[in-house]
Design a protein around this nucleic acid. Sequence first.
DNA 1: CTAATTTATTCGCCATAGCGTATCATCTTC
DNA 2: GAAGATGATACGCTATGGCGAATAAATTAG
Lengths: 83, 83
Amino acid sequence: MKELARTPKQIGSIIQRARKKRCWSQSQLAERAGLRQATISQVESGEKLAKLDTILAVLAALDLEFRIDERTKGHGQDIEELF
Amino acid sequence: MKELARTPKQIGSIIQRARKKRCWSQSQLAERAGLRQATISQVESGEKLAKLDTILAVLAALDLEFRIDERTKGHGQDIEELF
DNA sequence: CTAATTTATTCGCCATAGCGTATCATCTTC
DNA sequence: GAAGATGATACGCTATGGCGAATAAATTAG
């Protein structure tokens, strides 16, 4: 996987794709993450600026995790353009 | 690099190490990230729960970025244990 | 088309992050 | 010791995220 996550929108997209890949509803993910369905919706949209712990909880529920790496240089930075 | 970042404390440690590696003071990092020195201090401590955009700004200032990946096996930890 | 499920959005409430500003303890360096 | 820089912490303030609960809106199943 190893998806680039530079913006809230990118993070939201990745989360949404991972959720759908598991065929979970937002409610199911919310329950696993200890959050509300409404919060999942907002996180996936990337509009509101979530709290760090909220994102961490969602990622954990999806069996994902953050990694911190040096910024990739040069080409192809914005992942949203691929969709 | 590719450092694991599952908790605010881990993230804070990574940020602090990256900052020191560049021989920057918290104030210098704060200025580059558009934040306050006090905020950098809190982020590095990982005590307070930062906002996502704050972390993203700090990472960008350090020329780092998040990547989202599948959870590495090993210590199976529950979501609740994170906080 | 209808009903059920899923997702998006709203309202009032509370908690808290980050702000400006400032202070204070360390630690270093003259 | 004095001066400077650094990092941690405080106060009041504002902004906003997430909550419960509810309700639209959109999507899917039948």
